Simulated scan of single mutants.
Amino acid sequence: MPHRALSQKRPYLVLSVLAALAYFYLQATNLPGLYLIPIKGSAVAFLALYAWMRHGSRDARMLTAALVFASLGDMAIELDLIAGAVGFVGFHIIALLMFLRHKREALEGRDSVMFIALLLGTPFVAYLLPYDPDMKPLVALYALPLGAMAAGAWASDFPQMRVAAGAILFVISDWLIFAEMGPLSGSPIPQYLVWPIYYLGIFLITIGVITTLRKRDPELRVVKGGAD
């Protein structure tokens, strides 16, 4: 029996990618910003639906909640930077709690160095990037849970090439936002790179976590009403 098309098996995943691409390209048009906000938010909102429908575990529910916060942050940041940051902090905290439920026994060598670099280096670099001294402590404060989330992803037993890599991309996208307040002020680099790097990061986290959960707990992998 041939496999069903991706759009039939994982429609929310396909819709998420389409929304992410639509937002990226529509930014260059004359479409009013208010119309772009729900398109932007729907990209991660569809990932949340994907996580909810693909597995029935507590971890999948936690990931879904984290993604809902990220989606709200995506939309809120277009109106207010602080409101957007609050949404993303919600993502970082819930994702970190989920990663802590799957932490590896011990970290050694390169893994321990990378863990410390993400945990401490993320807020340190964030602090250095803005030129405005009043912004430095604010972005560093935000970057504390960001770094903890990324370090937690690295220390978890989820696949590093997906989940930890996705968390690192999330960090890089936020660094680019902070750099726009400093050395990249006036540069088109953040405008073109922040969204694709961020979306790819959160996409990899979602796919990596859900795929792993489905392999470990196959009896919970199909939620009633979902497509397998």
Rank of each mutant, 00 (worst) to 15 (best):
R162I: 02
I205N: 05
G90C: 11
L119I: 01
V163N: 05
S156W: 02
P145C: 07
V194Y: 05
I205P: 01
M135H: 02
E180W: 04
P159R: 11
I168M: 12
G152N: 07
D174C: 03
A106M: 12
G201P: 04
S156N: 07
G166Y: 05
A148M: 15
T122R: 09
E108N: 13
W195Y: 06
M114D: 03
Q160S: 12
A153K: 04
A151L: 10
I172L: 14
L119S: 06
A106K: 14
A155M: 06
V89K: 09
R101E: 12
G201E: 02
Y192R: 00
I116W: 06
T206K: 04
E180T: 10
D134L: 14
P159Q: 12
L129C: 09
F88E: 03
V113G: 10
G84I: 04
P159S: 11
D111E: 14
K103P: 09
K136G: 06
A155V: 03
F178W: 09
K136V: 00
G90M: 05
F158Q: 07
K103T: 05
G166D: 08
R162Q: 13
S185H: 03
L146N: 05
A117T: 15
L141K: 05
L193D: 02
H92W: 10
G147R: 08
D134K: 14
A140N: 10
F91W: 07
Y199A: 02
F124G: 13
L141F: 14
L97F: 15
W175G: 13
L169K: 07
G121K: 12
A179C: 07
D157R: 15
P130F: 07
F170Y: 12
I205H: 02
G186T: 03
W195R: 14
L128Q: 14
G87L: 10
A167T: 01
Q160M: 03
R162D: 08
A165S: 15
G166T: 02
A165L: 13
G182T: 10
Y142N: 02
D157P: 00
E108L: 12
D132W: 01
D132G: 11
Y142E: 01
A126F: 04
Y131V: 09
Y127T: 03
L107K: 08
M149G: 08
L129T: 02
L107T: 07
D111G: 01
W195I: 01
L129A: 04
G84K: 12
L100R: 15
L138S: 10
L138R: 13
L97E: 10
A126K: 06
L138D: 06
M135R: 13
I116V: 15
P145D: 07
K136Q: 15
A164D: 06
G90K: 06
W195T: 04
P133N: 09
D174A: 05
P145S: 06
Y142P: 03
A153Y: 00
L144M: 13
L193M: 12
A153V: 01
A179G: 09
P159D: 10
L96Q: 10
F99K: 12
P190H: 06
P137T: 07
L144H: 03
P133I: 14
R162L: 14
M98Q: 11
A117Y: 00
Y198I: 00
G84C: 07
F178K: 06
Y199P: 01
L141T: 14
S112W: 10
G90I: 02
I189E: 01
I116G: 11
A179M: 09
A150V: 00
V89C: 11
F158M: 09
